[in-house]
Every structure is written in C-alpha cells, then in structure tokens.
C-alpha cells in the first residue's frame, strides 16, 4: 500500500497568539511549531497499516525551509520519505492544488490529512484534493481499516455512528480515535537523518481569496459582584452598563 500523508506545521497549542500591527498576519517570532495533531493521527494510522500490510508512507508538506524540523520529526516517527513543496501555504485552495499536482501521477492508494489544522481550522483541504483528483473523499474519520482494495471507515454522526466502505484510492481526513500519536524514539531519530526529503517547486495557483484582517477575541471584562439583596443595583447594572435588559 502506498499512502501519502499531508502534514501542516502549526503553532504549539500553548502559544500566545499575536498579530502584526496592520492586523494582516500572525507573528511567528518566538513561536514553537509542531506537526498538526490531527495530521499526526493520520500519520500514525498510515504507519500502522503499512507496518501490518507492507507499503510506504510519504509525507508531504507545503511550506518554506523553516518547516523542515517538523518534516524531520514525521520521518523520525516512521515515514518512509518526505516531499516539501517550497512555498508559503497561502490558503486551502493553494495547498490542495499543490497536493493534487504532486499526487496525480504517483499512484497513491490513499491520501490522508487531519480533519483540520489547529491554526486556521479550515477543514477544506481533504475535500478539495478529492475533487481535484476525482477521488472519493471522506472527512472526519474515527476508524480506518483497509482490506485488499477496500477501505472500511467509521464516522461519528449526530446520535450514533456511520460505517462506510469505499474502494481505493480515496482521500481520508482523520480525527481522534483513529490512532494514538507516537513519540519519536532514538532509532527513529537516527534513521531520519538519512531518509530522503525532496524539495519541489510550487505550481502557479490563482489567488481566490484575500485575508483582510485578524482580530483577537475581546479581553474578558472584570466580574462585578452584587450583594444578594441588592436587586435594584443588579437591574441597574444590567440595564445601564451591560445593556442586556
């Protein structure tokens, strides 16, 4: 089985988020980047499947050279080889076009992504790649098994679960439950030194959207305590200050 796992490079969950003065971009200085956690789940399941049934796992990342530690970590976790598309990941459409352009004649049995990246939370890449490659695409999958040329997948739906079968090749986006992410071990880190990491140039993609500005949620205001018997005071505050009634 030949699997492509698309990984994105996202700020660590404990990062304090700041935007540039013109509010047009996220300030990356001093930020610790990690593999998007959902992508790590996809990667782990891809490794489990190929370890059991044979095959290879290629990781693909669209990003500039500063993201190589993240790619190297994916190799240390166990991926066979890696490809970096040398371009800043402008938006979901741009990324999906790059993935599809690379994957279209590589004969992957499965392309896997995370359900969403935890930075911009777009949840769009997997579906777009499916469309661009004319392959079925199944999103937010909790359980993934493959037998022969058929995948069996489970999704959580309102009030229950959905079981789907689908012939390969297909595109799958992974969520919690599919696998338990692995910590790279020393052997993995050592072997990652010599695994191939190929850089390819991006294809031209028209800009379909523009980011106008980013805002942080308004700071939470202070709590005001009102004495239990001061009903008039409470109503006054709700009416005049909070303007809620």
């Amino acid at each position: 089985m030949k699997i492509l796992v698309c990984i994105s490079n996202v700020p660590d969950t404990t990062t304090k988020i700041n935007f540039s003065d013109d509010a047009k971009s996220f300030v990356t200085a001093g930020v610790q980047f990690i593999i998007n956690p959902y992508d790590e789940i996809a990667l782990t399941r891809a490794l489990e499947l190929t370890e059991a049934q044979g095959g290879t796992v290629t990781v693909l990342h669209v990003g500039d050279a500063s993201t190589e530690p993240t790619i190297r970590k994916a190799l240390a976790i166990g991926a066979t080889d890696a490809v970096r598309v040398n371009a800043a990941p402008r938006d979901a459409y741009f990324v999906a076009k790059q993935i599809a352009a690379y994957a279209k004649d590589q004969g992957f049995d499965m392309i896997m992504t995370g359900r969403e990246s935890i930075d911009y939370n777009g949840s769009q890449v997997a579906s777009m790649v499916g469309e661009l490659l004319d392959q079925p695409s199944i999103s937010i999958v909790k359980v993934l098994n493959v037998e022969g040329t058929t995948a069996t997948l489970e999704r959580e739906i309102e009030g229950g679960k959905e079981v789907i079968t689908c012939p390969l090749p297909l595109v799958v986006s992974a969520t919690e439950g599919m696998a338990e992410a692995r910590i790279p071990n020393m052997r993995g880190i050592m072997s990652a030194r010599t695994k191939p990491l190929t850089t390819i140039e991006a294809i031209e993609v028209p800009s379909l959207q523009q980011f106008v500005k980013y805002d942080k949620p308004a700071a939470r205001s202070q709590v005001k305590l009102v004495a239990a018997d001061d009903v008039k005071g409470l109503v006054d505050l709700l009416h005049n200050e909070a303007k809620a009634i």
């Binding site: 190589e68 530690p69 190297r72 970590k73 240390a76 790279p184 020393m186």
Partner: peptide
Amino acid sequence: TEEHRLIRDSVREW
C-alpha cells in the same frame, strides 16, 4: 542542532 531539539522534545513528551 535541529536533531538535539528533536531528541530533547521527544524525551520530554515521553
């Protein structure tokens, strides 16, 4: 090095 940091962070996670 990048590898030093990966080693350290992996042990930390473990």
